[in-house]
Design a protein around this nucleic acid. Structure first.
Length: 549
RNA sequence: GCCCCCGUAGCUCAGCGGAUAGAGCACCGCCCUCCGGAGGCGGUGGCGCAGGUUCGAGUCCUGCCGGGGGCACCA
């Protein structure tokens, strides 16, 4: 990549100028070379290295910059046009337009893999997300974890990691008993207990069961969770997410894995008995309080099973564990990590806490409660908008922010959804291809195509955005922030629509047409790449809107 | 009381310590003899408050004020 070549040249220039290389491990970081953040700056790349060195060297930043420029000019790296010193001491690197042509060729060469990298090569990551209890349908808010988890998995994989999508099925424990009690009540035409599940889905399930039998045992009621799991799988299929492993909590108990973990913890001397219960000394590992592992009635806590589960993931060969949890589970993070550290697995799992989704309908906040039964399910949303709209909506913002999902806005105004704006850009490019075919225009091999005619501001803007895309993907993976890809693709679509309006692709100028056809193709590939990471389709055509709509 | 997240334009949100803080929606103007107007161009409008670190702070630190989520022998 051109940036890497420039970076190497910059290092060489620093060396030639007798300047030290800023320590990457230091507080203010190493040598940075990036496009200017300020869009009004026209340079291709900028570096603040002179300002970082000013203090070390003891001369003003602009003087340091001058020394670097002198050496860079002498080195003349490929594509370099000229370097300017700007503002407080920025080095603004201006390249010849040839470098952007190389970007386009690079995109075409990599196809829909463009933007992928190898930052995480060799890592085997187990990503657990959703893991909603099988006691009821997936609610709408969990859609966020589905969309974010799947996109994050894609982004991590795009950086070379082997990524495994895993769903932890809580098919043991008291919540399943509560489920059974509630279902049994419905079967017998009674109301579930106050703290049971009151959702209408149990009424339906009970009706189905009554159609084939007169009696229902508690155990059979309990096992009916499998029906719920089937519906969860169906919802996931509708939104297009597939898990590699559905891991049964019950198996952990049945195989003795849970008991074995308790023994391990005992052996390590990190537990104590008190009042008939077994406790983990998690305070030794930074937890605000110690935690119960085995209750005084002899039953294991969720934490103990969860420790067994996470150890199991490591035993299966995953080198790093990532869990996506809702912020309402914040209190469990430290406990789990303390326990894992006690078991010899520090820094596992990495827990990504996502802030919760607030659902709005009719301008009112919808209170969610499975137990009260007034849930809005993911299926409800998918009944009204397609999966692409739902996914992109969930991927619009950082998981650090509480998301307000306004059902009215998302459904009634779904045509305004950003997903269509982006998909439209892709469809437009495909449309150009169709028109070209009609006119008998063939795209010649890119090696035979001169891209020099691409000099319009719009074209430059697009090519620069293309150049930045790999960094965006790498950053999204590193920061576990797939929404960065969303932000990029929206901006990119905007740039493309601007280009489309101003630069006609199919013209009488054969050379220009060829160059623009390839630019458009590069844009299409990048859009397809980004949308694939987000789990959103890249359509070749959009359904036309009604004129009178 | 303690812990986590957030506070940026009227609204919803971007913004890896860098230069004059950006989008979408809404509102006000423009633009279809031309590849799909689900489009383009322009305008109005903003970093909760106070200190600190730094050559440089929306970004880092402290305090305060708001909003959300947690502080179980529940999961």
């Amino acid at each position: 990549m051109i940036r890497d070549q420039l970076l190497a040249a910059l290092h060489a220039a620093l060396d030639a100028a007798g300047l030290p290389v800023p320590d990457a491990a230091a507080e203010n970081g190493g040598v940075e070379l990036a496009p200017p953040t300020d869009p009004k700056q026209t340079a291709d790349f900028t570096t603040n290295v002179a300002m970082k060195l000013a203090k070390v060297v003891g001369t003003p930043p602009r003087d340091v910059a001058a020394r670097i420029v002198e050496q860079l000019d002498a080195l003349r790296p490929a594509h370099l046009d000229h370097v300017e010193i700007a503002g407080p001491g920025f080095l603004n690197i201006n390249l010849a337009p040839t470098w952007l042509a190389e970007v386009v060729r690079g995109v075409v060469a990599q196809g829909e893999q463009y933007g992928h990298g190898t930052e995480l090569a060799g890592q085997r990551i187990n990503l657990e997300f959703v893991s909603a209890n099988p006691t009821g349908p997936i609610h709408a808010g969990a859609g966020r974890w589905i969309a974010v988890g799947d996109a994050l998995a894609n982004v991590l994989a795009a950086q070379g990691a082997e990524v495994h999508r895993e769903y932890y099925l809580n098919d043991a424990g008291v919540q399943l008993d509560t489920f059974a009690t509630s279902l049994l009540a419905r079967f017998n035409g009674e109301e579930p207990p106050e703290n049971g599940y009151h959702g209408a889905y149990l009424v339906e399930m009970a009706e189905h069961l009554r159609a084939t039998r007169d009696e229902l045992s508690f155990d059979d009621a309990r096992e009916s969770y499998r029906t719920v799991v089937a519906s969860i799988r169906e919802d996931l299929q509708r939104i297009g997410v597939e898990f590699d492993t559905w891991f049964s909590e019950r198996d952990l108990h049945d195989t003795g894995a849970v008991a074995a973990i308790l023994e391990q913890l005992r052996d390590r001397g990190v537990v104590f008995d008190d009042d008939g219960a077994v406790w983990l000394r998690s305070t030794d590992f930074g937890d605000p309080r110690d935690r119960v592992l085995v209750k005084s009635d002899g039953s294991p806590t969720y934490l103990l099973a969860d420790l067994a589960y996470h150890c199991n993931k490591l035993e299966r060969g995953w080198t790093h564990l990532i869990d996506i949890w809702g912020a309402d589970h914040h209190g469990q993070v430290k406990s789990l990590q303390s326990g894992m550290e006690a078991l010899g697995h520090p820094n596992e799992p990495e827990v990504l806490l996502g802030q919760l989704v607030k659902l709005m309908r009719g301008g009112e906040l919808v209170k969610l409660s499975k137990r009260a039964g007034n849930i809005i399910t993911l299926a409800d949303i998918l009944d009204e908008v397609d999966a692409d709209v739902a996914r992109l909506t969930f991927l619009l913002q950082s998981i650090d922010t509480t998301q307000t999902f306004d059902l009215d806005v998302v459904t009634q105004q779904s045509m305004d959804n950003p997903v269509y704006y982006v998909q439209y850009a892709h469809a437009r490019i495909a449309s150009i291809g169709r028109r070209a075919a009609e006119q008998g225009i063939t795209r010649l091999p890119i090696v035979d195509t001169d891209l020099a005619p691409l000099v319009n501001e719009r074209e430059i803007e697009l090519m620069r955005a293309l150049a930045q895309y790999p960094d965006v993907v790498a950053e999204a993976a590193l920061m576990r922030a797939p929404h960065r890809v969303t932000a990029w693709v929206r901006d990119f679509a905007k740039s493309f629509h601007g280009f489309y309006r101003e630069c006609r692709v199919l013209t009488d100028d054969v050379a220009l047409t060829q160059a623009r056809l390839w630019l458009a193709e590069a844009c299409r590939l990048a859009l397809a790449s980004a949308l694939a990471l987000l789990g959103v389709h890249a359509p070749d055509e959009m359904t036309r809107l009604d004129e009178d709509d």
